[in-house]
Design a protein around this nucleic acid. Structure first.
Length: 279
DNA sequence: CGCATATCCTGACTGC
DNA sequence: TGCAGTCAGGATATGC
């Protein structure tokens, strides 16, 4: 499930591969990926344009164009961007929904079995370079940092579980289920603690843990899970899964206190934690 | 407003 | 071996 570290890894790959390149051809093969506008409109707005920067906000990729519009791509659950640069082009894989042929003859392909992923072009860009459609996003911990005071202010008075608040993109942009669990473990806080129950030092610990976990996960080029779905642009795996303390480790001993990791239910979602050392 | 719940979707896994 | 049921979860809509 691509979250901030995985999306950032893809972004870094795109920087070297699409920036400065012209879009020669657009093929929209699936029916669901392009849904905010018609595939024909997206195609018209992309063909002939060149990419100027490869940005990111939260889990959204922001590929700006030379007419100041921005191509927004979200991988959601199962989306994968692949860059094919070799002289031989493999056949189109199953679930390939969009193909961009670039001016240098290479291809960018979007593969997404579950079709939750999305592409659209936005022309309504604010002074920070953020499309109007993403104006609701909260702070991006990598781009803007995550000050303790900011996080604490958004937890104060809230009855909702920590994990729910951490994964609320309006508060912090980029954290999903996996990293929320890892962040709570690092902060020694149960993910089902209510936001409002945190003391000041606990809020500080949570913010610090979020910064550290995300930074380290980016350095490891993200997490590739058991399904091996997540790969970077070139098809390589991340390695942060080797450092997961709790995510998908129910029944295994806690690396910190030896208790067994348990799986909780928070809303309809799973949460993994150690009941021995997370309070 | 805050919070809970349902929805979209396919593939991997579980249990009989 | 096959088949039905469950789970995975990011974002968004809706209901209270």
């Amino acid at each position: 499930m691509p979250e901030l570290p995985e999306v950032e890894t893809v972004r870094r790959g795109l920087e070297g591969v699409v920036v400065g390149r012209r879009i020669a051809e657009v093929q929209v093969l699936g029916r669901r990926t392009v849904r905010r506008q018609s595939p024909a409109e997206l195609t018209i707005r992309l063909v002939g344009r060149s990419f100027t920067t490869a940005g990111r906000r939260g889990k959204f990729l922001l590929l700006s164009l030379d007419d100041d519009a921005v191509l927004v791509v979200h991988l959601r659950m199962s989306g994968q961007l692949l860059h094919l640069g070799g002289p031989e082009r493999p056949p189109i894989a199953a679930h390939t929904h969009v193909v961009l042929v670039l001016g240098d003859g290479t291809e960018l392909r979007f593969i997404d079995p579950r079709t939750f992923g999305e592409w659209f072009v936005s022309s309504d860009i604010d002074s920070r370079g953020v499309p109007a459609e993403l104006a609701h996003l909260g702070r991006d911990p990598l781009l803007e940092g995550l000050p303790t005071a900011y996080l604490a202010a958004h937890l104060a008075g809230r009855r909702a579980p920590l994990k729910t608040l951490l994964t609320d993109q309006r508060i912090v942009a980029g954290i999903g289920s996996l990293y929320a669990d890892e962040i709570c473990f690092r902060a020694k806080l149960r993910p089902d603690r209510s936001g409002g129950s945190l003391t000041a030092p606990e809020s500080a610990s949570l913010a610090k843990s979020a910064r550290a976990v995300l930074r380290e996960a980016v350095r490891s080029r993200g997490s590739s899970l058991r399904d091996l779905r997540y790969r970077d642009l070139a098809g390589s795996f991340g390695s942060y899964q080797d450092r997961h303390a709790v995510y998908d480790r129910a029944g295994e001993p806690c690396q910190r206190c030896g208790n067994r990791i348990v799986r909780l239910k928070i809303g309809a979602r799973s949460a993994y934690c150690c009941e021995g050392c997370q309070l």
